[in-house]
Amino acid sequence: MTTVLIADDQPLQRLGFRMLLESQDDMTVLGEAGNGAEAVRLAARHRPDVVLMDVRMPGMDGIEATRRILAAGERTRVLVLTTFDLDEYAYAGLRAGASGFLVKDALPEELLSGIRAVASGDAVVAPGLTRRLLDAYVRHLPAPAAEATADTTEPAVLDARLAPLTEREREVLTVIGKGLTNTEIAERLHLAESTVKTHVSRILAKTGARDRVQAVILAYDTGLVKADRP
């Protein structure tokens, strides 16, 4: 049974989500929150598998709530809901540790499959869309510290977060950051797809990334992948 906490400041929206989720045999709603602070309290109390998190709420917004829920170190994962698929809030949510995002007008089956995917440890953002999202907003961030080092051709190796990775794992992380799927990585690096999956699992374990989305963000943050900046 997948347990879900709904966080949205619109009562009718929460009711709609609850009715949809409780129509499923494998889902149950543990509670509802009307703002971020309440979402943090209820997540700590109930420890749901997934928090369905609206980002635009009064007081503490969904981004800060996501950050605090995940900082608690529980198994709870967050699925962010946004109005537009390339929304700065969606990007901020991913950086805060969310396992993915969906637009609010997603089809019911898309929402249900997204919740199930997040609960099982997968990310809900397709690799290509992840790359578009990061390219759109990472350019507005300060350049990673490693990027400022001009006297080396491999600045990312200097980042402590990459130190546990082998050279091959850094190579795989780089192409993950470029939005390639496992099949595409296998073709690009001339590896078996099962080998790629093993590398991805080891990268997540060694870096502490929660899922593939967080691995993509790590690739940007450490300078392995760079977005075009204005």
Results as ranks from 00 to 15, higher is better:
177 G>P: 02
82 T>C: 06
108 P>N: 04
162 L>M: 02
2 T>V: 15
175 V>G: 02
205 A>V: 09
64 E>M: 11
61 D>F: 04
221 D>Y: 05
45 R>A: 13
104 K>L: 06
128 G>H: 13
84 F>W: 11
229 R>I: 05
178 K>S: 08
141 L>F: 10
131 R>Q: 07
180 L>E: 01
67 R>Q: 02
199 H>A: 04
2 T>M: 10
57 M>F: 06
34 G>S: 14
158 L>F: 04
19 M>K: 11
149 T>I: 14
43 A>L: 00
93 G>V: 03
167 E>R: 11
151 D>V: 14
39 A>T: 02
126 A>D: 13
228 D>F: 12
125 V>E: 03
98 A>Y: 00
42 L>M: 14
86 L>S: 11
62 G>F: 08
28 T>V: 13
67 R>M: 00
64 E>C: 04
61 D>N: 15
190 H>L: 11
172 V>H: 02
150 A>L: 14
147 E>V: 12
169 E>Q: 15
159 D>R: 09
221 D>L: 10
42 L>E: 03
4 V>N: 00
197 K>S: 14
214 Q>M: 03
206 K>C: 13
45 R>Q: 13
50 V>R: 01
195 T>Y: 08
107 L>P: 10
10 Q>A: 13
217 I>N: 14
17 F>L: 12
190 H>K: 15
207 T>V: 02
88 E>V: 13
60 M>S: 01
95 R>H: 06
36 G>Q: 05
24 Q>D: 09
164 P>A: 01
183 T>R: 13
11 P>D: 03
203 I>L: 03
152 T>S: 08
71 A>D: 06
18 R>S: 09
114 G>M: 03
62 G>M: 10
107 L>N: 09
27 M>N: 01
144 P>A: 04
100 G>M: 01
189 L>E: 05
20 L>M: 12
131 R>K: 13
51 V>M: 00
